[in-house]
Design a protein around this nucleic acid. Sequence first.
DNA 1: CGTACAGTTGAAGAACATCAACCTACGTGG
DNA 2: CCACGTAGGTTGATGTTCTTCAACTGTACG
Lengths: 207, 207
Amino acid sequence: MSALGPGSLARMMELATVLNFETKDILFREGEQAEYFYCVLSGYVRLYRLNRDGREADIRICGSGDTFAESLLAMGESYHYNAQAAENVTIARFDLQKVRLLAEQERDIARAIIQCLSSYLRSTMDCIANDRLQTAPQRVAQYLLDNCQDCMGTVSIRLPFQKSLLAGKLGLAPEALSRAFSSLRRAGVTVRGRMIQINDVNALKQI
Amino acid sequence: MSALGPGSLARMMELATVLNFETKDILFREGEQAEYFYCVLSGYVRLYRLNRDGREADIRICGSGDTFAESLLAMGESYHYNAQAAENVTIARFDLQKVRLLAEQERDIARAIIQCLSSYLRSTMDCIANDRLQTAPQRVAQYLLDNCQDCMGTVSIRLPFQKSLLAGKLGLAPEALSRAFSSLRRAGVTVRGRMIQINDVNALKQI
DNA sequence: CGTACAGTTGAAGAACATCAACCTACGTGG
DNA sequence: CCACGTAGGTTGATGTTCTTCAACTGTACG
């Protein structure tokens, strides 16, 4: 949105419907007819898939400012994952068909879509590489490092969501995340609820 | 390309440089200044990342018609993975900066980029879900099913590349792929070199 | 004070990686 | 024509990593 000119911005805002969902509400399911794409305004939304046995795997955790199901602007008939509110959330919903038409007319909207898709493609590819290269403690260490701004000496971080959600985001069972945290204690990471203190950022980088 | 009008197509072709690489040649490395994006014309290109110990993990295997590094059209300064020829390949190379300008002018080029990014984003998200939900035999079974067209009764498939490349694509060590194939024998899958015979497609779907 | 939920810990097992040996198929040079 | 070397693939043995299940702990909230 921040990349749009005033005219396009206004026309996008006209198409937006703002909605609230409560924790664990399902926004849509895999296979459903896709009519909208979404932008998170507050809270977190979990995108996940099921296997035949009903086991769930998170694909992405969307926070405020993130969009999802945008890739259906180009191709879509139906959603290919489930979306669930991880907590009480506010989202903006856009009619896919109308945005498609708008993107044909307005260059800056098309450009914003390209930016957005590129950025998600990149982070999704990063996710594959991390899953395949890193162990659980390494993934957690990287998450912490990615989420501390200044990144020097001693830092404190507050997790923005539940640990079980972080576990899913990192492709781990909640127990594995817990064990990863406790194995990071020897690297100077102290966990108290959602507060995480890192004694030495450089030590963490060595993990 | 097939979605472009004649004018845009011609202007894109003007920007293309066709190049050949031999097996194991490196097209570019992670962190290098990005000047081009690529389209595979024949052969296969392996996109991969390294961890600190030098272990490699494949992110994507690109065959003919696939593009890569297109996400840099929106954002890029440098490549964020390595690209290596998995066999003798022919590729077309496009100057990123020039295509950026062209995409600003020509709507159909912007639309084609959106299509392309959407499709890769979708398949990359599928890859994450598969990695997290499926075991090695299941991934192999799904690969086989995805690559048999008619998909009824008995089918034969010829792998388009080496098994070690398939292993990397599926996020497995070569030994794990070999074991997965041998565990699929009881589901009626016979492997002889690159030829794979599936006795009963429906049985494979149950895996 | 009791209930519910998030998180931790322990024990067991599954799945995969790694290392090493071996087994082809193929091409080369004597 | 045969010995040899190489590269791709298989198989076995072993260890690591993570999942799963279960019991338990802490904490927030009515």
